[in-house]
């Protein structure tokens, strides 16, 4: 599906972020509900956010690689006010934002919100898994609590 989306349309569909030639694959991935993280095909190291070369070995042979999106909350906060976004209503309660240590992508965190949980239960160390919601009409990666 996302292959048929032109670069111009991709930029149109993500009005809130500056997409570059280094990150276009990752946002196309969102349209297919795939969370892609850069992995170096030469040395195997992961990095995020997307960079033009591998920070470890300087290879340009970078592969946006799908991760399953399970992980553990490393950083957490609850926004009582913040930027407006579709589906985010600060009047109804604080909006959690977390950075998650991703399983299988050593040393890489992905930041988003956590759905389906009261803000006070969104704590560091909580196991989470990937889910998707709609924002501005495009899929947006979020986390929810991972049941044991």
């Amino acid at each position: 599906m996302s292959e048929s989306v032109s670069d111009a349309e991709l930029v149109e569909r993500f009005p809130w972020v500056q997409i570059t030639h280094d990150s276009k694959f990752h946002f196309r991935g969102w349209l297919d509900k795939q969370l892609l993280i850069n992995r170096c095909a030469d040395c195997g190291n992961w990095h995020h956010p997307p960079k033009p070369v591998c920070p470890v070995c300087w290879s340009e042979n970078l592969v946006p690689t799908e991760v399953d999106g399970t992980g553990t909350i490393h950083l957490a906060m609850a926004l009582h006010q913040g930027a407006p976004a579709p589906g985010v209503d600060y009047a109804k309660g604080p909006h959690p934002v977390v950075a998650v240590d991703l399983d299988g992508a050593d040393g890489v965190r992905f930041s988003s919100t956590v759905i389906g949980l009261p803000p006070e239960e969104v704590v560091i160390g909580l196991p989470v898994e990937l889910d998707w919601v709609e924002r501005y009409g495009h899929p947006f990666p979020v986390f929810r609590k991972r049941e044991a």
Binding site: P15, W16, V17, Q18, G82, P84, A85, V97, S111, Y136
Partner: peptide
């Protein structure tokens, strides 16, 4: 920065 919509609340800028 010329964007048509503000960054998402989940964008971790330095102050957040």
């Amino acid at each position: 920065g010329g964007l048509k919509a503000p960054p998402m609340p989940e964008s971790i800028d330095p102050s957040a």
